[in-house]
Design a protein around this nucleic acid. Structure first.
Length: 290
DNA sequence: CTTACGGCCTGGGTGC
DNA sequence: TGCACCCAGGCCGTAA
């Protein structure tokens, strides 16, 4: 699943070919994952790609009108890959992969294609006037937030730490893989209530998150469920996973079998020995059953 | 207000 | 060979 490191890898790949290109035409297949399909055909043809950046898990393709068109506001093309989305440029004559639903013809003869098996992704246009609201719905970038601000986000919250890491309004870009991996490295159980964590633990989590994300970007992301970057290349960070999808396998630190439980409605992988369970989790469970 | 939880979208993989 | 079932991430409605 594309999370921050995978999206960053895709963005870096696209940055090599897209900026400066002009979009000539738009062809759409299924459109149920596009906020306003008609708007794409309205705004994109003739627009030049000014830059490609990442905003959390979104790929942001900034557009500008060509000089001949005169000044005209062009919205930003925002693409979220969901679980199975792929975005890549290719030759228009290349065979069309199954579940390819959007085609953007470019002025260098290449074609930008969006493929998404499950269509959990999303494509939308954000006008310049809506960018601050769009950004405002997301928390800070985990690689940019300071240690102090990070601790401040969690120290008074009653929610589970895993749920908060996944909440894009708290921190943007983190998904299930990097939440589990950073919690393991910080030795924090995913079901711990954020408020109950010590300052030292929050600092450790901040560092672990930075280290995991940085290492994953360096290895071009994690390839699970067929993720590939904009060049069709697989990432390598999945080989460094210590808990994610390693249920039953020995902890790399203490050999205890890794466990999987559901926290915040998500599979959560952890070492029951290295990541101590919340103090009264047993009592709570018993009370609920009664 | 905050948090928890279930359901929904879709289709590949699994197991019978 | 078919087919029921599980699961994934984000989002939304509802309940406490």
């Amino acid at each position: 699943m594309p999370e921050l490191p995978e999206v960053e890898t895709v963005v870096r790949g696209l940055r090599a070919s897209l900026p400066g290109r002009t979009i000539l035409d738009v062809r759409l297949g299924k459109t149920d994952f596009i906020d306003d399909p008609a708007a794409l055909g309205e705004h994109l043809p003739g627009a030049r790609i000014a830059g490609v950046t990442r905003i959390g898990k979104f790929i942001s393709i900034e557009l500008e009108s060509r000089a001949a068109d005169g000044p005209r506001q062009i919205p930003t093309l925002m693409i979220h890959l969901g679980m199975t989305g792929r975005l890549r440029t290719c030759d228009p004559n290349d065979p069309i992969a199954p579940h390819t639903h959007s085609f953007f013809g470019l002025d260098d003869g290449q074609e930008l294609r969006y493929t998404d098996i499950r269509r959990f992704g999303r494509i939308l246009l954000v006008p310049a006037s809506g960018m601050s609201e769009f950004q405002g719905q997301l928390g800070p970038e985990p690689l940019e937030i300071s240690r102090e601000d990070f601790c401040g986000k969690f120290h008074s919250r009653e929610a589970r730490i895993k749920a908060m890491l996944l909440d894009q309004r708290v921190i943007r870009g983190v998904g299930n893989i990097y939440a589990d991996e950073s919690l393991f490295r910080a030795r924090i159980h995913p079901a711990r209530i954020a408020r109950s964590l010590t300052r030292a633990q929050l600092i450790a989590l901040h560092s672990a998150l930075r280290e995991v994300l940085t290492a994953a970007i360096r290895l071009r992301g994690s390839s699970v469920s067929n993720y590939v970057d904009s060049n069709g290349k697989k990432g390598e960070f999945q080989q460094r996973h210590r808990v994610y999808q390693r249920e039953g396998k020995p902890c790399t630190r203490c050999k205890t079998p890794i466990r999987r439980i559901i926290v915040a409605g998500r599979s959560s992988h952890f070492c029951p020995k290295c990541q101590a369970a919340p103090r009264n989790s047993g009592k709570r469970k018993a009370a609920r059953q009664r």
